[in-house]
C-alpha cells in the first residue's frame, strides 16, 4: 500500500477482517431494531457510534499504518452491499474511511484527540446508508409501499430522514461518534490495557 517499511502485513489484514466482522455483528444486532419503528432508523446515528465505540477503540490501538481504516471501510461497503443496502452509499463510506484514516495518521495513530475526531468522521458511514433514501426519495417511498410496508411506516421514515434533517443527523453522528470514542477508550483502558491486550 505505502512505502515498504510501512507496508501492511498479513497480520494487519487479519486484524481488519476480525474487526469488520465484529462491527458488522454489532450493526446487525441494532440494525434489526429499525424495523420496529422508522424513528429508530434515524436514531442509528446515536446508537451505533456508542455501541461500536468499544470495539473501534480497541481496533485503533492496533492500527499503526496507513490503510487499515481505509480497508475497514471498504469491507463495510462490501458487506453493506451484500446486505442489500445498495451501492449508492459505498463511495461515501469509503470516503469517510479514507478521511478518518488520514486524520488518525496525522496523529501517528497515537494522539487521542486525533483518534476521537477520526472516529467521529468514520461514523459518517452510518449516514451514508441514508443516502439512497435522500437521493431517490420519491421512488424509494413508492418502492417501500409496493414492497409491502405500510404507508404509515413510509411516512414516518420520511418524516425522520429527509433533506432538511440530514444535516442534523450528520452532526449528531459526528458528536456521538466522539462521545462513543471517549466512552470506548475508557472501557478499553479499564478492561484491555490492564490485561495487556491493547
Amino acid at each position: 500500500m505505502e512505502n515498504s517499511s510501512k507496508k501492511l502485513k498479513a497480520k494487519d489484514f487479519i486484524t481488519v477482517g476480525i474487526f469488520a466482522a465484529i462491527l458488522f455483528a454489532v450493526e446487525f444486532a441494532f440494525g434489526m431494531l429499525g424495523y420496529i419503528h422508522p424513528y429508530i432508523v434515524a436514531s442509528y446515528v446515536i446508537i451505533l457510534p456508542l455501541a461500536s465505540g468499544i470495539p473501534m477503540m480497541l481496533f485503533y490501538t492496533k492500527v499503526e499504518k496507513f490503510g487499515m481504516i481505509t480497508i475497514l471501510s471498504i469491507l463495510l461497503a462490501i458487506i453493506m452491499f451484500i446486505g442489500g443496502m445498495g451501492y449508492l452509499g459505498a463511495p461515501l463510506i469509503i470516503g469517510a474511511g479514507v478521511i478518518a484514516d488520514l486524520i488518525a495518521k496525522s496523529g501517528q495513530y497515537k494522539s487521542f484527540k486525533k483518534i476521537v475526531i477520526s472516529f467521529g468522521i468514520f461514523n459518517l458511514w452510518i449516514c451514508a446508508n441514508y443516502f439512497p433514501i435522500l437521493v431517490t426519495a420519491e421512488s424509494y417511498r413508492q418502492d417501500l409501499i409496493d414492497g409491502g410496508y405500510s404507508a404509515e411506516y413510509a411516512n414516518n421514515l420520511f418524516a425522520a430522514i429527509n433533506v432538511k434533517t440530514i444535516g442534523v443527523l450528520v452532526v449528531l453522528c459526528f458528536i456521538f461518534g466522539c462521545i462513543g470514542a471517549v466512552i470506548g477508550k475508557a472501557v478499553v483502558k479499564k478492561h484491555f490495557e490492564k490485561a495487556g491486550i491493547a
Binding site: 424495523y35 419503528h37 405500510s150
Partner: peptide, 26 residues
C-alpha cells in the same frame, strides 16, 4: 397486511416481515 395497516401489532409484524422479505434472499 396492507398499505393501511396501523397499530402496534401490525407495525411489529410489518417490521418482522419487512426484514425477512427484504433481506432473506441476500
Amino acid at each position: 397486511l396492507s398499505e393501511q395497516s396501523e397499530g402496534l401489532i401490525a407495525s411489529l409484524l410489518i417490521g418482522y416481515c419487512g426484514i425477512v422479505v427484504q433481506f432473506m434472499p441476500a
